[in-house]
Design a protein around this nucleic acid. Structure first.
Lengths: 153, 153
DNA sequence: ATAGATGCAAATGGTTTGCAGAGCT
DNA sequence: AGCTCTGCAAACCATTTGCATCTAT
């Protein structure tokens, strides 16, 4: 499998775009992350490595990485677009705790297969899907079970 | 089953909020829609009925309807938040054509069950989920199969 | 009477864009 | 050399908020 830098280089070449120091840096920092970063968060990390990089470049490069299939947009419904590395990563979905924000990556072949079948039944051919499951994790359920404190005293 | 107006009235009462002409109107117009409207789109429709209603009120009321479980936010990843009526409507997911934007409501018990199992395995109890399948519908696949036109003449 | 609702307009905040200068190829 | 990139700041645009006024309860 081609290293991600090469994937990007190839994509850029194919599109007649150019490889730059910024793009290399952004890709590097981005891939090092295991969390789902927003553009702003990534921008902050980038700045610690090279304060001269502009925020617009981070936004633009994330779009580029998405097109190059090195990143994927994920939307946790909190108004901010996040990105997750896609390089060498198996497809997965998300199980999100509404209490603490914890986020577990899940993947179920049965669901995947049914999705395809379902789509086919409607004449669709799928290119991708997003599935987010929202609920409460064990810890947060226990936390909430505790009796509500009235103002003490 | 309680009529939606009553559902809203009950919710408002429970929260010590008030029923107003605007809220009634917005609920009415909203429920009459079968499409997934953005706040702006709903605002436009509302204005034809009563031009005096402010846009902020539409935004605020949609949030209210969501809390009252009469509406549900849906996010098709195009930067705009849409709402769909939830009153008396079975839960369903979405199959979206990336070619023409067509949107089919789907629901599969097998997937629903697996989701619960999957969540339980991780110690979660689910409150809700969103699943969007993206692909191309039959028409759009045929359209795209046609050889690319070069500038004619 | 009074807490809450409304409309307006201004503010917000994530994201995009125009532009002049810099950098790849 | 020429087309693309970059950083900056301004622009965008959906959504939210402050406030004076109005209204349901």
């Amino acid at each position: 499998m081609k290293p991600p830098q090469e994937v990007l280089a190839d994509y850029l070449a194919r599109q007649n775009l150019k490889m730059t120091a910024q793009r290399r840096l952004i890709l590097d920092v981005f891939l090092r992350e295991k969390n789902h970063l927003s553009a702003e968060e990534l921008y902050a990390k980038i700045k610690t490595q090279d304060p001269s990089v502009g925020q617009a470049t981070v936004y633009r490069t994330l779009k580029l990485l998405t097109e190059a299939r090195l990143a994927e947009e994920v939307n946790f419904a909190d108004g901010v677009l996040r990105y997750e590395p896609l390089y060498g990563i198996e497809h997965h979905d998300h199980l999100i705790c509404e209490g603490c924000g914890k986020n577990i990556e899940i993947m179920d072949p049965v669901i995947e297969r049914r999705q395809e079948e379902l789509a086919r039944k409607h004449g669709f051919v799928l290119s991708r899907h997003k599935m987010n499951l929202y609920g409460l994790c064990e810890k947060c359920r226990k936390k909430n079970k505790a009796p509500k404190k009235t103002t003490p005293g």
